[in-house]
């Protein structure tokens, strides 16, 4: 029994780390642009699927990882220029509808290119499972933990220790002030989507070896990422990570001990619970129109 629980905990940590990365990108995009990007999960899937194709050509995994990150980063930037940037005046709801439209299109595109097959990616490093107290930890999980750590450190370093990061933060609080300082909000928005694409792809390539990859898994990944972000208070980077890990553990335990069919239901119930029971904690994060 103890071993099973430990196993579920390890699985949950891995799952949770994935949600954390998605939540991190959602939160960062939201903080910087005010847009909740429901196409984030699609970036993850497309990143993983591109890696599948690249890996088929015999490239080493490290190169596959980099190329996939760069390509999806470019895709993110391209979509921002083609859509978000052209809809500047739209309400936050209009923007949400746009990202949903993007998500649908990207899913269709993935279906068109890669079909309905289920793919998997090779692990980043060789070697069998690591045994911890009778429970097995997939070495790939360690890579995923590392990715979360690197992303978190990267975001922290960027926002706290670089001129650009501070500028972006300032622009969130004071748009006019930012403009006066010569900070271009257009560029910031572009930057946000490029990094959202790149980080999404990084997450996708990293989880490929553990979870199988199919064209339609992006939507639920995006939703879970949002749940994680909402638990942490939507605009809070640290909260997003904790929220993601909590969600992962909860899902792992509930599917291991109750029923795997209800795994998705659990996270939705958490989402609704957070939204409805503690709305005041989260609502503060949204920049509402002032009357």
């Amino acid at each position: 029994m103890g071993e099973q629980l430990l196993q579920l905990l390890l699985t949950g940590l891995t799952l949770g780390s994935i949600y954390s990365i998605i939540a991190l990108t959602l939160v960062t995009t939201f903080n910087v642009t005010g847009i909740l990007n429901l196409a984030q999960g699609e970036f993850v899937v497309i990143g993983a699927l591109i890696a599948v194709s690249l890996q088929g050509t015999g490239m080493p995994m490290a190169v596959v990882f980099l190329v996939s990150v760069i390509l999806v980063g470019i895709l993110g930037g391209l979509l921002e220029r083609l859509t978000i940037n052209r809809a500047r005046g739209a309400s936050s709801l209009g923007m949400l509808i746009i990202t949903i439209g993007l998500s649908i299109s990207l899913r269709g595109l993935a279906l068109l290119i890669w079909g309905t097959d289920t793919y998997s990616l090779p692990a980043f490093s060789q070697g069998g499972s690591i045994m911890i107290g009778g429970a097995a930890l997939n070495p790939q999980s360690i890579w995923i933990f590392a990715l979360v750590a690197v992303t978190l450190a990267g975001l922290y370093g960027f926002f706290e220790h670089t001129f650009w990061g501070k500028a972006v933060k300032a622009s969130v609080y004071n748009q006019t002030g930012a403009r006066l300082q010569g900070i271009n909000l257009n560029t910031i928005s572009l930057l946000a989507f490029v990094s959202a694409g790149g980080l999404g792809a990084a997450a996708g390539v990293s989880i490929g070896p553990i979870t199988m990859v199919t064209y339609d898994m992006g939507f639920m990944l995006g939703v879970k990422g949002f749940v994680a972000a909402a638990i942490g208070g939507l605009s809070n980077v640290g909260g997003a990570v904790i929220g993601g890990i909590l969600l992962g553990i909860l899902e792992s335990f509930s599917s291991g001990l109750i029923s795997s069919g209800l795994k998705d239901a659990i996270s939705i119930i958490i989402l609704l619970g957070v939204l409805l029971i503690r709305p005041e904690g989260i609502i503060g994060a949204i920049r509402e129109r002032k009357i």
């Binding site: 709801l93 949400l96 939703v223 909402a230 069919g261 239901a265 409805l276 709305p279 989260i282 949204i286």
Partner: peptide, 24 residues
């Protein structure tokens, strides 16, 4: 009581939940 984005996401969550219930 939720505004804009949150209302959108709460209704979205409700939709997914009901769909799961149909399936399960």
């Amino acid at each position: 009581k939720l505004r804009e984005l949150y209302l959108a996401l709460a209704t979205l969550g409700f939709g997914i939940l009901v769909h799961i219930i149909f399936n399960e």
